[in-house]
Design a protein around this nucleic acid. Structure first.
Lengths: 174, 174
DNA sequence: CAATTCTTTCAGTAACGACTGAAAGGACAG
DNA sequence: CTGTCCTTTCAGTCGTTACTGAAAGAATTG
């Protein structure tokens, strides 16, 4: 379990980015390692490759499984758990988007709705302020509705629509 | 400078979310406060409203200005700096998206390109592994191209395209 | 039902980033 | 030029989260 320079670079970078994407460095590194590995790995493989504690692998793997980014598999005649990452990139980003949506946008929309309701009774609050809370709620719930729609469209069709969007951008310019 | 319960809730929540969006709690709280305020505020107004140190306001405001989310203004006959947030929600999210793109996606695409190049010379690396790095690069650079296109389309037209996307989702289902 | 192998839990520690308060730096008024 | 007002810088502290290592737990084998 020794990593080539390019693969090590990939894993380290992914770890850095992970901190910006809601997880910690280790979780993201493990995810990168599993994504790069053609075969499923054991926890001890990961310990060795990344030089981290066994317990750290255990908790990080659990987080990745909860995210839906890593699956557990088994090998006949071997008691150990093996892990592999979802290897389809499109599926992977769908999963990440979904998670982030649930953790960030959905609770915010809930909060905004209750704020709007409460503000109705707060007569000393400036009208412009109320309007801005309203605007934020409208923006996010429109976006939420749109995202919910898009999620139901099959991958191939989304790709098609994206190409269409790019086409329109060109027409707009000319 | 006293906040109503609903506004306080808004600001606290925004602060929480800020930590998930690449900034820290204070920066996000200040941004929320300025967004909610119908008039520009001074640094001391912010100190009082959020109970934080003056120096903390100074550095946080700088970060918000660098993000392009807050502008400085002045009042005739008053030496102090006043600050106001971009109040248009659409513009605000465009700005946030652009920043996050530059900080997260762009460097990753750069990293992936160099990885792909280096992997060409690393003959002991598994073919499937190389393929996966390639897939990731392709996905992200396609997404980057698409995003660059969309950014050039005027707001109204993007909204139209979003509605069109939702429409297609409905057609797909029936 | 002991011994072995693997996994998980958890308390303590280490590392990191945010925040404060004091001091320095600038700009203006008298 | 001096004092006042406002802003910025920075060293130190505080708080939070990640990580480790030891111990407990669970599953399997002979």
């Amino acid at each position: 379990m020794t990593l080539s320079p390019a693969l090590e670079k990939y894993i380290l970078h992914w770890g850095e980015m992970g901190t910006r994407w809601g997880t910690n460095r280790t979780v993201a590194q493990i995810h990168a390692l599993l994504y790069l590995s053609p075969q499923p790995l054991t926890a001890d493989d990961i310990v060795e490759a990344l030089s981290i504690a066994r317990s750290n692998v255990s908790t990080s793997i659990r987080e990745l499984q909860a995210f839906g980014l890593v699956r557990m598999t088994h090998v006949m005649g071997d008691r150990r758990d093996y892990f592999e990452a979802v290897s389809d990139v499109w599926e992977m980003f769908n999963t990440i988007m979904e998670q982030r949506w649930q953790r960030e946008i959905a609770p915010t929309v809930t909060m905004l709705k209750s704020c709007v309701a409460e503000l109705d009774d707060e007569h000393d609050v400036n009208g412009e302020t109320k309007q801005r809370v309203h605007n934020m709620l409208e923006f996010l719930s429109d976006a939420a509705d749109w995202y919910a729609e898009v999620r139901t469209i099959p991958e191939q069709r989304v790709k098609m629509l994206m190409r269409l969007g790019a086409r329109v951008a060109e027409l707009t310019r000319s």
